[in-house]
Design a protein around this nucleic acid. Structure first.
Lengths: 196, 196
DNA sequence: GTCTATACCCCGATAGAC
DNA sequence: GTCTATCGGGGTATAGAC
């Protein structure tokens, strides 16, 4: 699509370069979360960062690259948080820990949630979808909850269920996402998931 | 947002008016499904319909109104199809019928699926989300699968699971969505969903 | 009632001056 | 490194021909 960005890696470039990138990612995340993809125009981003539109483009290469960077930054916070919770749990409790951590993190950071949704809706490089369900499928198999032949669909359903619960919590603040997480976790542990 | 469209209802207006609207909705659906929301510009739509951009706008009022109309048209095809299948089933089998009809319809009409996804991702009037899960929640309660206190979350999880399965089938044609539907239907009937 | 022509403003992106 | 100027293209509004 677009040309390669000079400082694509977050660890490259000069001090000021990295600082600018970090600032731009922060501003973009906030703007995208609050106003949506379309509302986060380069002009508005530049305005908030106190730069010109062209200067922003100089640093990030293109709008899509900027969104991608903000997306990756946000996603890393989520995945590392979830991974920490999963690793701290015993294999049998890992699926429940995954569900709780996922819904908990996204419920506590609605801006992150909106950022991820907007980015995914607007042509962020979809990492094959397998990257989303495969880790969960492995967790499920290790817990003995689903066999190899069924773990993919079970993981997809749980992932989709998490998305739906988080979205609902976003639209209706009265909806108890923590209780929903427990309900989904109970389902995972229940007998319905594995054929006998 | 935008001004009211002259022939907003599909049954209003002149013969040519209705014909034009139908044609524009068809062209838009095809274009959005194949090229995405951004790829379906008014210029391209006008080009395919052999009209000028302004003429298109005359008939539909605005791009968002056009997308909304195409979305509603596509959604009606889906919901009427699913409703038919559900009504033909006994209450106890209704949840499974819902799941099969939903996944079956969307699997057979990938263009419809993409149209719905694109529209939902790009600011179509989200009908409160309740319109999505409430009908299913009622089906579940009638089937005795979920109690009143839990049917909302169960319906959300099933709905999200359906979405995830359909999306996966879109990205990976080798993925067996029919088998996944059966797996999800079996879960619904299983003991995992209801607390005892 | 249907459509063409035209003009407006904002968007993302590029070129070149400072 | 950062700016101004500019470009093509997007959605929209209006005037007026037929």
């Amino acid at each position: 699509m677009a040309k390669e960005v000079p400082g694509a890696a977050s660890s490259a470039g000069t001090f000021t370069e990295r600082a600018r990138r970090a600032q731009l990612i922060a501003v973009t995340t906030e703007l995208v979360a609050d106003e949506g993809y379309q509302g986060a125009s380069l002009s508005r981003i530049a305005e908030r960062a106190e730069l010109s539109k062209a200067a922003v483009l100089y640093h990030v290469g293109s709008k899509d690259a900027l969104i991608q960077a903000a997306y990756a930054h946000t996603l890393t916070a989520l995945t590392s948080d979830v991974a920490r919770a999963v690793q701290a749990a015993a294999p049998a409790e890992a699926p429940a820990a995954y569900i709780r951590a996922m819904i908990g993190h996204l419920g506590e950071h609605p801006r992150h949630t909106r950022m991820l949704i907007e980015a995914l809706s607007h042509g962020v490089e979809e990492h094959a979808s397998a990257e989303r369900w495969q880790p969960l499928a492995e967790i499920l198999e290790a817990a003995g909850v689903a066999g190899a032949g069924e773990s993919r669909t079970v993981a997809l359903v749980i992932g989709g269920g998490i998305d739906a619960i988080v979205r609902e919590g976003l639209e209706d603040p009265d909806y108890d996402t923590a209780a929903a997480a427990e309900q989904l976790a109970a389902l995972t542990a229940g007998s319905g998931w594995v054929r006998r």
